[in-house]
Design a protein around this nucleic acid. Sequence first.
RNA 1: GGCCCCGUCGUCUAGCGGUCUAGGACACCGGCCUUUCACGCCGGCAACACGGGUUCGAGUCCCGUCGGGGUCACCA
Length: 364
Amino acid sequence: MHREGFCRFPDLIRGPMEFAWSNEQDHVIQRADGTCLYHLANVVDDADFRITHVIRAEEHLSNTPRQIFIAQGLGFSLPQYAHLPYVAEPGSSNKLSKRKLNQYLKNQDFKKLCEHGQQVASAARMATSPDTFNPVIVDFYRAVGYLPDAILNYLVLLGWSLDDRTETFTREEMVRHFSLDRVNKGPASFDPQKLWAFQCRYMQALPAPEKCDMVSPYLQRAGLVGTPASDGERHRIERVVEAAGDRIKTAGDILEFTEFFVSDADLQFDEKAFTKRFSQPGAADLLRRFRDRLVQLAPFDAAATEAALRQFVDEEQIKIGDVIHLLRLAVTGKSVGVGMFDAMALLGRDHSIARIDRALARVS
RNA sequence: GGCCCCGUCGUCUAGCGGUCUAGGACACCGGCCUUUCACGCCGGCAACACGGGUUCGAGUCCCGUCGGGGUCACCA
C-alpha cells in the first residue's frame, strides 16, 4: 500500500472522505493456494459487473481505501460510494446482530414480537428453531404472515425520510422519492412496536379477498380446512375474516379463531374463564333460558340474535353483561373474540345451540 | 488503543441562521365509545448532550469537552 498521501473519495451520504494511506496496513489478497480473499474478489467482481454505485453499510467505510487501492492497481475506474448507517439494537446504538438474540429478548417489545410469532408457529404446527425463527431474520416475518409492503415501509423510514409528515409509501412511491442525500448518517435502532404499527396499518387496508388468500395456508397447515379449501370452507374463511376485522394483525392470527373451524365436540373451553363465569349463582339457569329463546328465533342472524338478547335482558331486568359472557364462553370457548352476534350468526343456530347445551352439560 | 463516524422527545425523524414558546409518527398516560377483545375519536406528557466562540440573532456555522458507535483477519 502507499506509505504517504491520502485516499480521498466522495461518499454520497457522508460527503468528502479522507484517509491517510500511512494508517493502512498491507493486506493479503490471495492465499498460497491461489484462492482470493474478499476484498480482491469484491473489487474484481464489481468491475466485472460494471457496478456504478457501491451502496453498503457503514461498517465497510474503513475498508474502502484498501478496495480503492486494489481497484486502482488493477486499472479499474472507481464506483461511487454510499455508506448507509446500520440498523441498531432496540433502544441502543449497537449494531443489530443475529447472534445476540438472547440479549434482545430482555427487551419487552422485542420479546412480544417474538412470542407472537411463536404462538402462530405452534398453532400452525411449524417447526421452528430459535436460531432462524426470530425477528432479526427476515424469514420470521414471512412465516408469521406479515405483509412485505409493511416491512418495506417500516424499513425505508429507518435512516431516511421524505419530509416532516409523509410516512406511508407504496413501493412505487419509494422508488420515486428515495434519494441517498436524505439518508441519515447515524444508526437507527430497530423498534419492534413501530414495525408492528405499520403491519397493523397495512393489514387494515388490505382488501378482504387478499386477506383470505393470505390466511388460508395457515388454516391448512393447522389441518382445519382442506388443501385446497372447498367452496364451503372458502366461504367460511371469508366470513370469519370479515367478522374478525382488525383483530387479524398478521395472517397467522387467523389461528386465534379456530372456534369457527372445529366441530362442536372438539371445541376447547378456556377452563379458568369458564369456571369463573359459570360459578356465579344462577348462571347456568340464565343461559338455559336464553338458549330456549334462540331455539325458536327466525331468522337466525346477527341482528335477530342481538334483538333477542336485548329483549331478554330487558325482561329479566339484568344487564347485557350478565349473560353475554356466559354465552361467549359457551359458544366459542373463549372470553375474547369477534362480536358475539357475528359469532352466532357465523356458526348458525344448530351449532350455537349444540355448544350451549354442551357447556350446560358440563355444569349440571 | 489507532483510524473513522455519529449526537433533536423513550424510539424513528422534520429542521439546511430569524417563520422553533422545535413539527409529525410509534410508544406511553388520561377520557369517550363499548357484550369481550380489537378498532375508532378527543386530550396530554415528552427532546435540541455540555461549554466556548461567530452573528443583531444558533437546534441550525466553527472549536473544544463529554457521550455513543463502527472498524482494525490468509471471514465475508
